[in-house]
Amino acid sequence: MSDGASAERGGLRKLYATALELGPLLLFFVANGKWGIFIGTGVFIVATAIALPLYRVLERRWPVMPLVGGFFVLVFGGLTIWLQDETFIKLKPTIVNCLFGVILGGGLLLLRRPLLKPIFGSAFRLTDEGWYKLTVRWALFFFVLAAINEVMWRNFPTDTWIASKMFLSFPLTLLFAFFQVPLLKRHWDGDDNPFVGKE
C-alpha cells in the first residue's frame, strides 16, 4: 500500500474515532432537549456502550481515556437514573478530568515517569523531554476542563451545561491538541517526523 493510501486510511480512522467520541454527546444533547435529562442520560449510556466496542474495532486496541470516561458514564449515569438526581452526571466530567490530571501529575511527581508515554507511545515517538512537557501540559489542561465543567453546571441551566460539552469543552480539547503539534515536531525522536510542515 502506498504512503498516500496509508495516510488517507489513518486520517479516516482518526475522523471515525472523533465521531465516536462526539456521537454520544450529540445524542445526549438531542435526547435531553426532547425528553429531559434522565432519558437523555439513558441514551448517553447506551450510545457510549455502543461506541467503545466500535472504537476497539477501529483502533485495534481499547482506548484508555475513552474507556475510563465510558466507565464513569455508566456508573454516574446509572446513579443519575436510579436516584433521579442529575447531580451525578454533571459531576462526572469534573471527577474524570481531575482523575486524569492527578494520575498524569502524580506520575511525574512521584514516579518520575510521563504516563502519557505508555498510553500513546505506539502513536508518537518523542524524546524524554518531549514526553515530560506533553504530560505536564495535558495534566494542567485536564484541570482546566474540570474547572470549566464546575462553572458551567453550577451556574447555568442543564441545557446550557450539556451544550457546553459539545460546543466548548470538546472544541477546546481539539484546539489544545492541535497546538501541541509544534512540541511534537520539536521533540520527535527520529528522522521520519510526520509533523514537519504542520505548524
Rank of each mutant, 00 (worst) to 15 (best):
D85W: 02
I45P: 04
Y55A: 15
R61S: 08
Q84I: 01
N97C: 13
L83P: 05
F167W: 10
N149R: 09
R60P: 03
A51F: 07
G77H: 11
L183H: 07
W35G: 11
Q180I: 00
A7N: 15
L67Y: 01
K117M: 09
P182G: 09
S122L: 04
A47Y: 09
L172I: 04
L108P: 00
F88Y: 15
K198L: 10
G77D: 04
W153S: 08
G4P: 02
A147R: 13
S169D: 07
L25N: 11
F141T: 04
Q84M: 07
Y16K: 10
A163K: 10
L115K: 07
N32H: 13
D192T: 06
L54K: 10
E150D: 14
F72E: 02
M65T: 06
N155G: 10
L168R: 09
N193Q: 02
G78H: 09
P157I: 08
I119Y: 03
G106C: 05
A5D: 10
P63G: 06
G121W: 05
I119K: 11
P157W: 12
T48V: 12
I37H: 12
V144F: 13
R61G: 03
A47M: 10
G36V: 03
K185W: 03
I95Y: 05
P114S: 03
L140D: 00
T135S: 12
R9W: 02
T80I: 04
V46E: 09
Y16T: 15
L175Y: 08
L22K: 06
R60N: 10
F143L: 13
G42R: 13
A17P: 00
R154F: 02
I39N: 07
F124V: 03
E8A: 15
K14C: 01
L52C: 11
G42A: 07
H187C: 07
I45S: 07
H187W: 04
P24E: 01
F72Q: 06
F142W: 10
K34N: 10
R13M: 10
F179D: 05
L126N: 00
V136M: 14
F71M: 15
L116S: 02
D3P: 03
F38S: 07
G130T: 00
A49Q: 10
V196Y: 04
E21C: 15
L115T: 01
T48M: 12
G33Y: 00
F124N: 09
R61H: 09
L25Q: 08
I45G: 04
P66L: 03
D189S: 14
T18I: 15
V151H: 06
I103F: 04
L79N: 12
A147P: 14
W131K: 13
L74A: 15
G11E: 11
K185I: 01
L79R: 11
R61Q: 11
W82R: 14
P53W: 01
T135L: 02
F28C: 03
A139Q: 08
F178G: 10
L15D: 02
L110S: 09
